[in-house]
Write a protein that binds this DNA or RNA. Sequence first.
DNA 1: CTGTTAGCGCCTTCAG
DNA 2: CTGAAGGCGCTAACAG
Lengths: 350, 350
Amino acid sequence: MPDERAARRVTLREVARAAGVSTATVTRTLQHSPRVEEATRDRVMAAVKELGYTPNPMAQGLRDGRRDGAVGLVTSGFTNVFQAGVAAGAERELRRAGLQMIIASTDEDPAREPEVVRALIDRRVSALLVMPDSDARDHLTPDHTFGTPVVMVGRQTGELSADLVTTDDDAAVQEATERLIGLGHRRIAALAGRSATFPARRRLDGFRRGLTGSGAVEEDPKLVVSELATSEQARTALRAMLRLPHPPTAILALNLGISTGVLLERLAGAAPFAFIGFDETEVSAGLGISAIVRDPQDVGRQAARLAVSRLAEPGLAPRVLTLPSRLVARGSGEIPADELAAGTTPLTTR
Amino acid sequence: MPDERAARRVTLREVARAAGVSTATVTRTLQHSPRVEEATRDRVMAAVKELGYTPNPMAQGLRDGRRDGAVGLVTSGFTNVFQAGVAAGAERELRRAGLQMIIASTDEDPAREPEVVRALIDRRVSALLVMPDSDARDHLTPDHTFGTPVVMVGRQTGELSADLVTTDDDAAVQEATERLIGLGHRRIAALAGRSATFPARRRLDGFRRGLTGSGAVEEDPKLVVSELATSEQARTALRAMLRLPHPPTAILALNLGISTGVLLERLAGAAPFAFIGFDETEVSAGLGISAIVRDPQDVGRQAARLAVSRLAEPGLAPRVLTLPSRLVARGSGEIPADELAAGTTPLTTR
DNA sequence: CTGTTAGCGCCTTCAG
DNA sequence: CTGAAGGCGCTAACAG
């Protein structure tokens, strides 16, 4: 009967002995060094396969100082569909590069980010991908990261010497706003998340630029609500707005949770309005909800790419990569203002 | 100007020198060994803090053979809401135990599982959490895992000496079926996923037990469809069923993707039917869709617990943990058969 | 109570 | 083309 307890694994030395060579030769063979005779190489490879040898990454890492062979990903939680997508894209790309991904969550608590980053840095991860909620960044300065390459996802880096991947949410929101204005809407509401987060501020900026740029509409403070942390809060805010003397005819939801709240309110039979969401799910897409969408997997992939390239070439200057946020028309956002007046709005599309 | 390139980190020896002691004493201090004089300890701790020392996990890992300080999680993809939840729960629990989580995806391709597991094992992870699609398990035998503790999530282990965490899906589906029968339904349809996956088979089993157990209803092959891989396929299958001479009056969707398809078809104005889904989203819950739900975070947490406990005590016998799947009544599943006949079904709840 | 020593598995000079 | 040797950072005997 095989012993099922912690089996010790084959070491380089054992391979060397089995092949009748020195450990140095085994190493050279494994690294495809040209300075190894054909016959020797064959003997070594045979021994490697025979014994099922795999190098011990910890020994390797110890040897050449840095390099844990894993990249850390800091997220605020996988429950977030966007971040889950980023993680998936990053993992795939890292795997292709022979790296593994250590994932660490702040559990939606921005204050926890420093300790989470710290744990990863202390572990000597090869690089760090950070998808942050907050703007804090003291813990990401070089003297805290010990030179570990950092890629920020979705947030300004300020003077940080880190790479950055973002989506151009502001431009997309601006475009969506202009589109609604073009359809005759004059009372357009924006529902946003916590303004402590960078994306919320950025998207609201886009909204305001869309309004002022048009010249035709000026902002009504009653139609802009932020600090919406749950879909339930979004529903409540929306209901209140729709009861205003001059209710909005179009709603812009600036994140997925809020979009969900608006969607539910809409399906529950709220007064009709044009609606553009942000990010989407299979259900919202299937229901014909227009939305500003991004490709989370691609964001993750690109972030991983940046990290990998910096691993290979540490001297690179910080890079910024801006990926598209696109407005996808599915019906709910293309309802002209006058149709609403006429009361012919379908609640859902077929 | 600070050098932003790979800063070498403080080592144990440097701390020892700064504190005027030997490295052994520093180690002892750090491990809270009682055999250290108060004054010495203070000096050491001061030096540690002063220099910002953190142990190098790779050196530690190398020293005591096994132990990478990280647990691997094999998933088929985070896009899967359930698996994302499991990952979140596991990560939190592992973090509490001072472990990190390396996540590796098979990208929905069961055939890839062996290589993914292999990469993790070769990395010498401390333990492995596996959420598999398929039944394959050759790659999880002790001679492939070298004694690394394995916890399976959601699948039978067969004779494998691994721990297991599952939810009792079959019982819940059986209960749901009986509930529908109790409401007068006699034509109940079940839509299931790929029968190559264990959960799909298990849930169908529950359905059949529910039917036969009642004695009142016998299975109609036309009302059981499996191999549904996308929500779109589910919609198509559902549409076909509703066009049968004797269409079903109740639908059981046996996974989230299928539930989504049924939900969309329902919202698009399909003929009315009682509906119970499996797993849920904020939207489906908000729309009053009854469903069999599980607590993915708890599943992850328990799996992590098992792994951690086995790390502490490797000799334990394999354990099986069955967590509940509960039927949550939200309206869509509580429609009596005769109400349908009367044509009074609301499409959504208010 | 504390210091010395050896070695975990690997890679990289430096010799031959 | 190949071997010998040292050391990455840490900890666990083994002295003292």
